[in-house]
Each structure stands twice: as C-alpha cells, then as structure tokens.
Write a protein that binds this DNA or RNA. Structure first.
Lengths: 229, 229
DNA sequence: TCGCGGAATATTGTGCACAATCTTTTGCTC
DNA sequence: GAGCAAAAGATTGTGCACAATATTCCGCGA
C-alpha cells in the first residue's frame, strides 16, 4: 500500500490511458467525479501524475475541470455533439480514403475480423461489447490509414462519441451499423475510393441521426469497481 | 520582479499561447532549446506553469522533451511532414466544405481581407509576414467552418507546417499559393462545394511539393529577443 | 596534444507541506 | 421548523527544497 512497491509508471501516462479506455468503453459515464485522491489510491501513482493526466484529458475535452472543485467526466452538449460528428466525418473520410486507395490487404483483414467479432457479440446479446467493437472498427481503420495524426484524432473522437452515446439515449442502430461496416470493407477491397468515402460519411451521418436530443442520466461510479480487473 | 506584481496568468496558458504563436510565426525555429528557467524569466510565471505548457506542446508534437535534458522546438522528419500534409488535406477539406456549403458571407469577407493583406505584404517584400498570413488564411477558414474541433486541429497543423517549412527549405511558391487562395474564395462565394474541396486538396498537395527533402539549419535563439514586443 | 576520469555546474523531476477555495455540517435565532 | 451564519472538513492549487540526471570543465597521465 505504500509507494515503493508499485511500478510507479512515470508522469501518469498510465492513468491517462486507463481513463481514456474506460471512457471509450463506457465504463466511465458523463458526469462522474474523478477525485485525485481516488485515482491516487486506485493507480498507486503520485498525485502530480494524476493531476497531469486529468489536465490532459481536460485539454482533450474528455473531462471537465472545475477550479478548486475537481474533475468530472465530460458531458458534451448538443452543439458539441454535432461538432464531434462533423469532425469525424471529415477526418474519417481521410482515413478510409487512404485505405481504399491502397486496398491494403492487412487493413482489410483487420476490418473483417472486427466486423466478425462484432457480429458474434451482437448475436450473443453482448450489446456493450458490440458497441465497443463498433467504435473499435473506426479505430482499426484509423490505425491502418498510415496517418498517426488522424489516428490519434479518431481515438479521441471515438471516446467523445462514447460520451455522447452514453448521454443522449441512442436508438440502437447496431445492425444498421454492421451493414455499413460490411459495405465499407467491400468498397476498400475493390479500391472503390469514392464509394468508400461516401459510405463512411453516410455512416457517420446515420450514427449522428441515431442519437436524439438531451436525455441525461447523472451517475456516480465507484472507481475501484470500474477499474477492477 | 517578485510574484505578486505580475498578472499571474494561471497554469501557464499564457506561455503555451505565446510559444504556439511564436512557432507558427517562425520566430522559434526547430531545434531551439526551451529552458524552463529562461521561460520563467521571460514570462514571469511559476516554473510549474512553464513545465505544464511544455508538456502540452510535447503532447501536440510541437516540442520534444528529452528526459532530464530539456525541451526543444520539434524538428519533424520527412515522414512526419508527409503525415502533417495528409492530415491537413483531410481536415481542411472538411473546413472548406463547410464554408462553401453555406457560402457564408462573413467567412468570405474574412478570407478576402486576408488575401488582400497577404498580397500587400508580398508586394512590399515582407516575405515572413506573407508566409504568416498565408498560414492565417487557413486559420480563417477553420475558424469560420463552425467546427471548433477542426479549427483547433488546423491551428496545430499550421504550426507544425511552419516547423516543416522552416526546416526543409521551401521553394517559395508564394505567388502560386496566392492564386489558389483567390480561387478558393471564388469557389466558396459561388457555393461550388466540390470545386472548393478539390482546390484545397490540390493546394495542400502543392504546398507539400514545394518543400524538398532534408536540409536542416540548427539555430539557437535568444528567447528575450524572440518575445520582445 | 589527445584521451580519460572525476568534480563542478546546470537543469529537470518530485515529494512535502501549506494555502486557497469550495462543500457540508452544525448551531443559533426567529 | 425555517433560515442563516460560522465553523469544520474535503479537495485542489502551489511554493519550496532536494533528488536525479546530464553536461561542462578541469586536471592528470601517456
């Protein structure tokens, strides 16, 4: 329980990555308070590292820091949500174009595997896993696009999309997304660049249409439960 | 000279913005060492704020931090440079599309003003100001696109482009850029969305073509001179 | 003169303690 | 019981001092 036993991951990158993943996977819901003390206890790293991680997440609009009050998982409003989808449309048009143009077999294989896993989860009723993999599909595309910059942005935008979905009561177009993903793979395989880009834009537009206006559920999570292995 | 006299801009946002602007305007060249002590002296804020600003710039790939050695203005390599232009192509296709689709008179007016100022600077031989305004043109577009997310990314990518241009010996296609900018304005004014997007992609591609391979000039700048008003 | 080792210096990294601020509770008055 | 004020508690913000590490300088020997 004391300091010297822990691995002491430097400068809180560990905390940052865990929080980012937890937000993406919807284990951390919008509005959840992130106390420095709790994170220090949970991760066993110095308080400074925790503060740095929270500061970075705040810059990335994934948490909101209220001065002298603490950090909370961000709760995007409707305007921010629209911006998120608009930005995803532009950026993911770029990532899918890069893949379709090269018709990269490795990327296509990774995409197919993701689609298959998602279908399995969806069939067996693991909705949360299916949603996670559905976001992961876009991450796979981004990571194979050959652009680290765009990939990083997609990472953040997918995480923020998780917040939006957790906040705005989605209309579960899961099967529909699946079809879009399949068509995207197909377009990329045959090098149909224009079609792939158009499909991606339509897909994100539909994703946006599936989340209705404000219906916020304020929750408080136990951090030790969220990060339990 | 003591603490309580200064405005004490909190948490180093001031340092961050000044450094970002200095990099964008090419007053800080790649490789320049940024000592915490110098920045503390220059800006008169606490060391912690300076460290936070440098950390953020490092996350954004605008500076490189070597552990226990200090922070240096980033020097992108050829691969990173290509990524920067690829990302700009995707993101700025989104910003210009948003403007062309709305044919926003306010945005078009701002773009025209920028082009005019750039032409004036170019005519009077103020090359550095012309380059700065040329980057500013893209910022104007981004800020009027209605997407804060994309605008922020353009901010960072324009800054990194300044680093690339300062590092890779550009072939001064300034007049050419000017023509592209003029055509962009024209396309937006008439709502020619497809043409505007194509023009922007071609423009960035040409921008990329105008910087040749590696030819690095290591410089050391005096910070007090760089930030002198 | 060149190479090498060690001390001196400079710079960044971090723990600690306290200050500042906000929230909650308690107690007093009407 | 309601309302308000002050104190107690909790949480974040920050200055300070020292530790860890890298760089430079100097002296010594071949």
């Amino acid at each position: 329980m004391n300091d010297r036993n822990r691995p002491v991951t430097r400068s809180g990158d560990d905390v940052y990555l865990h929080l980012l993943k937890a937000i993406t996977d919807q284990r951390l819901l919008p509005g959840t308070k992130l106390t420095e003390f709790s994170l220090v206890e949970t991760f066993g790293i110095a308080r400074r590292g925790v503060a740095a991680a929270l500061t970075r997440l705040a810059w990335e609009k994934l948490v909101t820091i209220l001065p002298n009050r603490g950090a909370f998982v961000a709760a995007p409003n409707a305007e921010e949500a629209r911006d998120i989808f608009l930005a995803r449309s532009a950026i993911e048009a770029g990532t899918i174009e890069a893949i379709a143009r090269r018709a990269d077999p490795l990327a296509i294989a990774a995409m197919e595997q993701n689609v298959a896993e998602e279908a399995a989860c969806r069939k067996s009723g693991k909705t949360r896993d299916a949603i996670r993999l559905s976001g992961g599909f876009h991450l796979v595309i981004a990571q194979h696009s050959g652009s680290p910059i765009l990939a990083e942005q997609v990472r953040l935008l997918v995480a923020r999309t998780s917040l939006v979905i957790g906040l705005f009561e989605n209309e579960s177009g899961l099967s529909c997304w699946h079809d879009h993903h399949l068509e995207l793979v197909d377009h990329c395989r045959h090098g149909r660049v224009e079609a792939a880009v158009a499909e991606m834009k339509a897909h994100i537009e539909e994703l946006q249409a599936s989340v209705a206006l404000d219906r916020r559920r304020p929750t408080s999570f136990d951090l030790s439960e969220v990060f339990a292995q």
